[in-house]
Amino acid sequence: MKLTTKEIMEIIPHRQPFLLIDTVEELEPGVRAVAKKCVSYNEPFFAGHFPQEPVMPGVLIIEALAQAGCVAMLCKPENKGKIGYFGGINSAKFKNKVVPGDVLTLEVEIIKQKGPIGIGKAKAVKQDGKVAAMAELTFAIG
């Protein structure tokens, strides 16, 4: 199942400038999601991070991964209208810079869930196949 930006906004509450995924390329509700983020020079964070050498902040890469995971969880009928909150970020590693022109593939697999709490294994990969970031994300559906 593929989703457009408009369809993503029907599932998660994030909006510009904080909606950090453009499309969802693969989706298995409650199991996994693969989203895309086309990183443009016009992103508001590049004005200050850094003006001479624009680099996407690592925390925003993690946030984009979390938004992809939110789509996977919130597209389940029983979670419709709810919000996914961060519960934790474990084992985050940043391997390669993300710069204007990069296209990130954001892969999140839900590896554990008990009630409203779950854990997702997340990885952001650049268009050249290099891993930009990876982490284990804990979330709460509320």
Rank of each mutant, 00 (worst) to 15 (best):
M9Q: 15
V125M: 04
D22Q: 07
Y85D: 13
E26C: 05
G81L: 11
Q127P: 08
I61E: 02
K37Y: 03
F94C: 14
Q52H: 14
P77Y: 04
K95V: 10
D102Q: 08
P17D: 10
V99D: 04
P77C: 09
Q16V: 07
A140Q: 06
I117R: 10
V34Q: 02
G129C: 14
F46Y: 12
K76Q: 15
Q67C: 01
N90Q: 15
R15S: 03
F50P: 07
I12G: 10
E25K: 12
D128S: 05
G120E: 01
E53Y: 13
L19A: 07
E28T: 15
K130G: 13
F86P: 05
E25R: 12
V98F: 11
K121G: 00
Q52W: 01
K123V: 15
I61A: 02
F45L: 11
P54I: 03
V59D: 05
L65D: 02
E53P: 00
A122D: 00
I89R: 02
K114I: 11
V31T: 12
G81A: 11
K82M: 08
Y41T: 02
Q16M: 09
Q113Y: 13
E10W: 03
Q67R: 01
N90V: 00
V131G: 04
L137E: 05
A92K: 14
I111N: 05
E28I: 09
E10H: 09
F46G: 10
M1E: 06
S40N: 12
Y85N: 10
D22T: 08
A64F: 00
I119F: 05
I110F: 05
P51H: 11
A66M: 06
M73R: 07
K126P: 06
D102M: 09
L19M: 10
M9Y: 10
P57N: 06
F18W: 13
M134Q: 13
G30Y: 03
A124P: 05
L3R: 00
K36N: 00
N96V: 09
E63F: 03
G58T: 02
L106Q: 02
A35K: 02
S91C: 04
V125Y: 02
I21L: 12
A72G: 03
I119W: 00
I111E: 10
V103D: 01
G101A: 14
K114P: 01
A47H: 13
L74M: 08
E28Q: 15
K121F: 00
P57D: 06
D128Q: 04
G84N: 08
H49S: 08
T105G: 00
P100L: 04
M134P: 00
D128C: 07
D128R: 03
T4S: 15
S40M: 10
C38M: 08
A64G: 01
P77T: 01
F18I: 13
E136L: 09
E53R: 14
K95M: 14
M1Q: 07
I62T: 09
G84W: 01
I83D: 07
L104E: 04
K95H: 14
A122F: 00
A47S: 14
K112S: 13
K36S: 08
L3G: 00
C75N: 05
D102V: 09
D102Y: 06
C70D: 11
A33N: 07
H14A: 02
K95Y: 13
M73N: 06
F46K: 05
P57I: 06
L27I: 13
K6E: 15
N79Q: 09
